[in-house]
Design a protein around this nucleic acid. Sequence first.
DNA 1: TATACCGCGTT
DNA 2: GACGTACGCGGTATAG
Length: 582
Amino acid sequence: MTKLLTYDLETTGLNPRTCRILGIAICISVGVTYYITLPKCIEKAKKILEVLRPYFKDASIEKLGHNLKYDNQVLKHYGIDVKGKLHDTMVGDYVLHPDRKHHGLKLISKLHLNYQQLEFDEIAIGKTKQDKTLEGVDPKLVSVYACEDTDQTLQLHQYLHPQIEQNGLLDSYNLDCQLVDVISEMEYNGITIDIDLVKEIESEIDVLLKNLKQSILKFTSGEFNINSTKDVNHLLFNQLGIEPIGDKNKNGLYSVSSKILKRLLPEHKVIKLILDYRAIYKVKSTFIKALLQIDPVSGRLHTSINQTVTETGRLSSSKPNLQNIPSRTIGKKLRQCFIASSEHHTLIGADFSNIELRVMAIISQDVTMLSAYKDGEDLHALTASKVLGISYQQAKENKDQRNIGKLINFGLIYGMSSHGLRESLFLNAGKDFTLEQCQDFINTYFELYRGVAKCREDLVYKATINGYTETLFGRKRPLSNINSNDSYKRSAAKRLAMNTPIQGTAADIIKMAMVKIHKRIKSEGLASKMLLQVHDELLFDVPNSELKYMEKLVKYEMENAVHLAIPMEVDLQSGRTWYDVH
DNA sequence: TATACCGCGTT
DNA sequence: GACGTACGCGGTATAG
């Protein structure tokens, strides 16, 4: 019988690098739950953790918890590296119900076991929800709370695990559980930020904003807030008499989104100024602000990498979100602020080349796509040549035309209509095609890639029967609206039925690569650190002595994470900053 | 203060 | 009448 250690830590806060452990409840195998209160004296606390250490580091004992990503970071901060296979009820509930918004222990305990646990807010001390803490709460009460958590975690595991097996989700579950360790470390490591450069860029931006604001205010009268859609509406459509595009929204305002403003550009020169102001203001208010959230203790930026949020199986990033730092737009310079951890370290950036398109080829088994990839052809150029009726060679050389092929390829992955394609081609390529032309592009596309058209029908049909859609590796996404009477909802569900297998399979593949790379770093005792994942890209911080070896290792493990009909291709670069390696 | 909605950055 | 996936988060406006 496998030995199982279930545990739950109670701490003074949510930052695993600054909080103190107040107590720990453990349950060894199936049996009694013990609770240990750690004294306020840090030395005594450490002694108790020393007693537990052998159990944590014993790889033959499997570990179970709810959100172990957190508990293991706290333990790591106390010098304990948890070993052995991990199980996590939060991950378990997620793979079973990815459409659920939350997977909190109290919630799922109520849902699955119909047990009402003691809520954190009931026992914690603090005026507002945000500053509630267990610090100072009667240890006996904390003990009850912790034991209940641990007990429910074990019961939930026993309840959920058979369901995971029965629903064919064991592979997805095991993959995600293996990833807990990886992500736990990534969050704990954090990223080094060149804070002086951040501040330098911020002052440059302040000057730009000030100048733009002055220029814009020349066209306005009275109080004017550039960030107010109401004020911009009034300026453009009343004061300047520009003819609005589209309909009023429920607030009685016309849309002044960048999409609309870009179409209105020729009408007045203030529109360009407003677009510029907005873009730069966004850099300051969102991205500069994100980079300033450095942990004063570690001196690095620690994002949350969320494993149980997306319905497709992707990861997400928050507090701050580092998956949407600009890479093409005005703010891309900010990537220069993400730097290697010392002058003796280098960053490696590695990204899967066209992973979603390759996955589409694999899932659909489309002969044209597969043979194009096998022959090392340029798929964007191929699409462009057929759709635009030009030679493959010309499409390859003419960047503009190739770009159209690229936008069509991406659009079709998402199940885009002729309207969406038209919008995309206008916004991203500056090409104003008619709806009919766009519909022709789509028709030609499906004639060229017959297998893709067939596959999309199959995916929708299967989803209609099953009520869910799934990835190549069996991760499932429920589609409750796939048979809805509401045609809008039904169409949206159909798009998901076609898109999720692509996006989700790509997510599965990079997760497998992450696990493999992490295992090798550990087993070979390397000092390199995985820092970030941005859907098809991984970022590492490596000592220069390991650079050449890690470049090979990362590329190899990513390209060999899975072996499918066509190979995965990885582009890899190293450099001092994230800007240099992207 | 909490929530809804718009808008926009990434993939 | 709308018409592209997946997110997180900043802003304004509004309800309580």
